[in-house]
Design a protein around this nucleic acid. Structure first.
Length: 426
RNA sequence: GGGCCGCUAGCUCAUCUGGUAGAGCACCGCCCUUUUAAGGCGGGCGUGGCAGGUUCGAGUCCUGCGCGGCCUACCA
């Protein structure tokens, strides 16, 4: 990474994934041939050395090189050593340079790797097994999002990159895989922003005979465990905010959130519309048709950014939770929660709806609502699976990229994805 | 989609109201056998994002386009 020549001798700093060490090379202690190689070495070349370890008079651990081998020649010069690589665009396009030059980037991605390892370990220890389900779906499902479309030539059929693994994972519940998780990519054909990359990594887990409450417990335990193991702290510094993870975490009913804003009955469309106007929530004509859209916009604008410390919002209306089980005690509501922290949504979980008739009805209602949307289809195959009997279960989804952002204090999802999607440069 | 900002050497950045594009690092040559942003002397390696326009003259002013960043909107 650096060379300091002093006539008959030279100091070099070299590094690999294990760290950095200084080399000391003397003209008279190396064979002629290797000296010739050394004279043509550039920063960025990959070399192997043999020699004796000693300490310089400044106390630095150093290798007195006796043999040197050129393992790989660098033809393109690396970015400058002192200022490093700053250009955001090049950092994303040529992430390998970012990783070589910027220690923060390298540390951040090491953390990402550790976070994923730790999640797997945590879940494995609790008896979950990792499974992998299709990423190419004949019918997109499991979330409300626009899919990417592709085509299989031999079968001559369109396929959709999955927008969520949910419906396949629950088919596995039917097949008696009782505690399962998948950590992998989902794809949504929507806008790109500091919080959205078209492909993103999600954890989904399902626990047969569990429910929403179990998911809450797991979510809290998992994130606490990550905070301790990754950052060794119960607080997170995140974008000028301090997130306090001390337990118990705050819980609030979805409808209480709106009651707190003066909407005593969220079914009262006039009251909701009035509030939206007061709070200057911008609405499209389409939004105005649907009270849930308006409520969601109010929530996103006024509530979400203020949920800094972890907060569970729970008990959602059935209308916006088509795959969740209705609450026996609260008609019209489902057993579901979402977790917010640092102003971001990080988790979504519910007691899974396992009644095929009810599920079918909800699918049909959703299709009816989306008359303009040709992509919306009823996944009859999934309904059929439910007809064989799916155990009651809790299910949880966590957006891994956002979780990594929170744990590494990253300002953008692009900072935590090795190769975020960018328009190709001409 | 809209607003603002950026794009100059491999990298980090200068270039004032328009007048032949220049520093550091990296690279090449020479000196120097314990330096660590080593140092000294010498060398500039460029389609100034792209395309037009204004002008005697454009990196600089104007228009369009491209790519990116931030904000915002849309989608959900």
């Amino acid at each position: 990474m650096a060379m300091r020549h002093h006539g008959g001798s030279s100091f070099l700093d070299i590094k690999d994934s294990s760290g950095k060490i200084q080399l000391y090379i003397k003209k008279n202690t190396m064979p002629e041939k290797e000296l010739f190689i050394f004279n043509h070495i550039d920063i960025g070349d990959i070399i192997g050395v043999e020699g004796d370890v000693f300490r310089t008079k400044t106390g630095e651990l150093t290798i007195l090189v006796k043999h040197l081998t050129l393992l790989s020649k660098s033809l393109s010069p690396l970015p400058e050593k002192w200022h490093g690589l700053k250009d955001v665009e090049i950092r994303f396009r040529k992430r390998y340079l970012d990783l070589i030059m910027n220690e923060e980037a390298s540390n951040l991605f090491s953390k990402r790797v550790k976070i994923l390892q730790h999640i797997r370990m945590f879940l494995n220890n609790r008896g979950f097994v990792e499974v992998d389900t299709p990423m190419m779906h004949p019918i997109p499902g499991g979330a409300e999002a626009k899919p990417f479309i592709t085509h299989h030539n031999t079968l001559d059929m369109n396929l959709y990159l999955r927008i969520a693994p949910e419906l396949f994972l629950k088919r596995l519940l039917v097949g008696n895989f009782e505690k399962i998780y998948e950590i992998n990519r989902s794809f949504r054909n929507e806008g790109i922003s500091p919080l959205h990359n078209p492909e993103f990594t999600m954890l989904e887990l399902y626990s047969a005979y569990g429910d929403c409450n179990e998911m809450m417990e797991i979510t809290e335990a998992l994130i606490m465990s990550l905070a301790v193991n990754i950052n060794n702290s119960f607080t997170l510094d995140f974008q000028e905010k301090k997130i306090d993870l001390s337990q118990p975490w705050k819980k609030m009913k979805w409808e209480e959130v709106f009651a707190g804003m003066g909407i005593s009955d969220w079914r009262d469309k006039d009251a909701v519309m009035k509030k939206a106007k007061e709070e200057r929530v911008e609405l499209t004509e389409e939004d105005k048709e649907n009270v849930f859209e308006v409520l969601d916009k109010i929530f996103k604008k006024n509530i979400e950014p203020q949920l800094i410390n972890p907060t569970f919002i729970y008990q959602y209306p059935v209308e916006i939770s088509p795959l969740a089980k209705a609450s026996p005690d609260n008609p019209g509501m489902v057993e579901r929660f979402e977790l917010f922290m640092g102003g971001l949504e990080v988790a979504n979980a519910y007691s899974e709806l396992n009644d095929p008739l009810e599920q079918h009805k909800r699918f049909l209602e959703a299709v009816k609502k989306h008359t303009g949307n040709k992509e919306k289809m009823v996944d009859e195959d999934y309904i059929e699976a439910l007809e064989y009997g799916m155990p009651p279960a809790g299910g949880l989804g966590i957006g891994i990229d956002r979780l990594v952002m929170l744990l590494t204090n990253a300002s953008s999802v692009r900072e935590v994805i090795f190769f975020p999607l960018l328009r190709p440069k001409k």
